[in-house]
Design a protein around this nucleic acid. Structure first.
Length: 243
DNA sequence: AGTCATGTTGACGA
DNA sequence: CTCGTCAACATGAC
């Protein structure tokens, strides 16, 4: 379900509850969620795949992991991890990771690392990549401390668009291609957002889950690459391997 | 029906 | 202590 763009959609959908007081709270989260009773939500934020509910002195960090879901003004059959009731509706989260962050949320996150944040800084990403020359680009793109919000779909689409083999080593990739990868990680994330909202995300996949290269018509390779061993779809003819 | 997947954390052993 | 591996979590699509 969730790469960065999906969490941005979540944030947009719950804005109706920003500024609202939580009049009832329940759920099976491992932490003391009763702390939220009568608290007023000051803002919603996202950092990559992290959804943040900000209060005066603390923040609730929600990560949907692979299977997390949510419902707005609806309920599922199963017990929610966290359910919040407001005077104007309710918000329910299921099968997700929920933690507290204390104090100012800005002390917990570097917003320049989030490819969808207004403070996203490509130069910062470039510096971070220079620190890991021996890492495969498929792993680097999934590193949330470099490309916060990028997930496996975005990884595959960015590498295909940039003609880069996923097992290329960061330090061996030409500088101009590094710049292109960094730029495309943000550009594609916003295209992902647009297409996801139109319920036509999959229609626009060029490589992810595809069998054939649309450029040269040769079969795409499916391989679990890098230390993260996440599946990659790529064309050995059209994507250059730098090693 | 079984397999697999848009993800992360923490335990464990070498 | 650090590194790598893997189990755990848990749902829905095919």
């Amino acid at each position: 379900m969730p790469e960065g763009p999906s969490i941005v959609i979540l944030k947009e959908e719950v804005e109706q509850f920003s500024g609202q007081k939580i009049i009832a709270v329940s759920g099976n989260a491992a932490i003391d969620i009763q702390r939220l009773q009568d608290q007023t939500i000051r803002s919603f934020k996202t950092w990559g795949k992290n959804f943040l509910i900000c209060f005066d002195d603390f923040t609730v960090k929600i990560h949907l992991l692979m299977f997390g879901t949510y419902r707005i003004n609806e309920r599922k059959e199963t017990t929610p991890r966290l359910s919040m009731l407001f005077s104007n509706g309710e918000l329910n989260f299921y099968t997700c990771s929920i933690k507290f962050l204390e104090g100012d949320v800005n002390l917990h996150y570097d917003w320049s690392e989030d490819v969808m944040n207004e403070n996203w800084d490509p130069e910062n990403a470039k510096k971070n990549l220079e620190k890991v020359p021996n890492v495969m680009i498929c792993d680097a793109l999934l590193d949330q401390d470099i490309f916060s919000g990028v997930g496996n779909i975005i990884k595959n689409e960015v590498l295909y668009r940039c003609h880069i083999h996923p097992e290329s080593l960061v330090g061996k990739i030409p500088k101009d291609k590094i710049d292109e990868i960094i730029d495309e990680s943000s550009v594609y994330s916003f295209e992902f957002l647009k297409w996801k909202k139109q319920f036509e995300l999959k229609k626009h996949w060029l490589a992810h889950t595809k069998k054939t290269c649309l450029r040269c018509d040769l079969p795409l390779i499916k391989k679990y690459t890098g230390k993260k061993k996440r599946r990659s779809f790529f064309c050995t003819n059209c994507q250059n391997l730098y090693e």
